[in-house]
Design a protein around this nucleic acid. Structure first.
Lengths: 346, 346
DNA sequence: GACCGTGATGTTAGCGGTAACATCGCCGGA
DNA sequence: TCCGGCGATGTTACCGCTAACATCACGGTC
């Protein structure tokens, strides 16, 4: 996309004083700037005596690398771009935190572009904003089932990892094993005496939601239990509340698996208002293990996702591609963990 | 702080092909690269005919600005650094989201450095990581009362804004009016018939916590009500739970103002376990208005903070300083809003 | 007709670094 | 003793852009 005048802000006033450069360090001790560069980047190629003189001068002059110059010379920015859906939600916020920690440890900066809707248009706009900052790679937290919105907006030459998304040809990806998590919690509810398990699912176009539906459905089928039609939510507490009101009107609901903890909270609210006791009357379980889940009324059984591990793995994969100079369609899966609390303990 | 060899990752393989440059665009239509630069940065200084030829060539060649070169030439990176405490918490995550949106609209990238503890050491490390990326300004989400940990780590020449922090000489800042929020909710509880209001406060060294204590205390004093000693939490649900257990043992607790919604959730849990009914037996209110607060059992009265506005104001202030080339110790206050729900409706 | 000012565009240099090629001295082998 | 190789360091050029200075043509005024 071409930029035109007016898109960027006016370059502001230059800083009052400039920092020491390699040329300054070199001149101070009578070596070439190339020698200073070698000390920092290829230390074995400089004699120990010269190396220590250079390091001392660096310390005395307060020299600090100039990222812009290095990026220009190497054509690399040491920056990873992250495109994410709503980062005030616990899952994306936690994944982003993990990404930022892992990137920092690898010496990379993280630039974030958030999108409000996972449409091709808003993804393209976010990726264009990142491309303007010459990121070396992209981590795309795009939990959509349909990767047809993702592939057209990615530059095939730019290293990329999709997190919690569908398997796309040629793309690396990291995800938590959603189906396994759903199976674990469904099995748990059946083991606690439920004849079948109702399900409040996430949005139909989210691959996480679909995987959880698949895991719940498969586990029920394998147990020979009836498979009721799932209800649909949008991850928010109000949508869980509405689903809870519907389920509360039925007489045959003994257990509910809710696709995330926030909707589970809404559902608990609705059941409470309808006079249902958890877990005496209905077993309830969620997914995610948000920090508050242990303090719901009652404390919620849930499936814990290791978002920090997801963040670390995605940085590992994207930097592997950056270092190799080419894409690598590797796929990594992080295991979930069932956390049993009072909402299923009767 | 001087960098030495080994601190940065090995510069990776260069991209396979290089993007079009201004020189390419210029050569394609027979003008100078300076003319191309003028079209993008000073459009009024080039004739309309030449301007349209340049823009067409830019589109055809897929020219995209090179940020590193421009940063080197102007000594500006168009990047704002954000230092924040735990960005998986709702407040910091929401503020960060607001900052990222506002910066994007102003044509700036945001680079984030998260810290786990608000100590001088970890703040310095985070700011050093940002300085390595030559940020043009810093937004420091540092809700500590004692700015003595903040001032030593900030470069006086680097534009900075402190968010939710103490007033420090020479620093710009943005905050929500915490005292006002605390007064509003305390007044509300008194108006609902409480003879006095107990308080579960945040950590003693957080300025938000102290401001909320001050607002609660002042409102009680003005109402001629007894001022009980506040209990201390650390913002987490478990700490609210412990406070709730202590309060539940007393016979004289008719209303509690909890310093955030997560601790309020824990306190509600403890009261429930002790057989106390909210709001029949005790009125309970929180602070923040997290999205789940409306679905607590019962739905929680709380004080809503406009984190998005905080984010926008902080970007406005930091970019004002960047443009002016000097610090401006302006201070902006965002008003809170009382949200009344069932936990105080009897 | 000459001269001066101004708008439009071109030329040159530098921002701070890395990479490629050059130079020099020393050491070992013939 | 001479020559070649290699380690350590220096020199030059370039990365892509902006800024400062230069050039040219045209129009207006004297």
């Amino acid at each position: 996309m071409a930029e035109t005048g007016g898109d960027l802000p006016e370059p502001p006033v230059r800083p009052a004083r400039r920092a020491a450069t390699m040329a300054d360090v070199a001149q101070a001790i009578g070596v070439s700037h190339q020698t200073v560069s070698r000390v920092l980047n290829d230390p074995g190629s400089v004699s120990p005596e010269t190396t220590s003189r250079v390091l001392q001068a660096i310390g005395e002059l307060g020299y600090r690398r100039n990222r812009a110059a290095r990026a220009l010379a190497t054509r690399r920015s040491q920056t990873i771009g992250v495109v994410s859906f709503d980062t005030t939600l616990y899952g994306p916020a936690s994944t982003l935190f993990g990404i930022e920690q892992a990137a920092g440890e690898a010496g990379y900066a993280v630039t974030v572009a958030s999108v409000k809707a996972m449409t091709e248009g808003s993804l393209r706009e976010a990726i264009d904003r990142l491309a303007m900052h010459d990121v070396d790679g992209i981590v795309l937290i795009a939990p959509l089932r349909d990767t047809s919105t993702v592939l057209p907006v990615l530059d095939p030459d730019l290293p990329a990892v999709v997190v919690e998304g569908g398997r796309a040809p040629g793309l690396a990806s990291v995800c938590v094993d959603q189906e396994l998590g759903a199976r674990l919690v469904t099995r748990h509810l059946l083991d606690r005496g439920a004849r079948t398990v109702w399900h409040v699912a996430g949005p139909a176009d989210w691959i996480e939601a679909e995987s959880r539906v698949a895991g719940w459905r498969d586990e029920l089928a394998e147990a020979g239990a009836e498979v009721p039609a799932p209800l649909r939510g949008d991850w928010s507490p109000p949508s869980g509340y509405q689903a809870g009101r519907k389920l509360a009107r039925r007489k045959d609901v003994g257990a509910v698996f809710v696709a995330n903890d926030q909707m589970a909270l809404g559902l608990l609210r609705a059941f409470h208002e309808a006079g249902l006791r958890i877990p005496e009357d209905v077993l309830v379980a969620g997914f995610d293990d948000v920090p508050e889940a242990g303090y719901y009324t009652p404390p919620l059984t849930t499936v814990r996702q290791d978002f920090a591990a997801v963040g670390r793995r995605s940085i590992e994969l994207v930097l592997e591609q950056v270092a190799a100079g080419r894409a690598a369609a590797r796929h990594q899966v992080v295991a979930p963990e069932l956390v049993v609390r009072q909402s299923t303990s009767r």
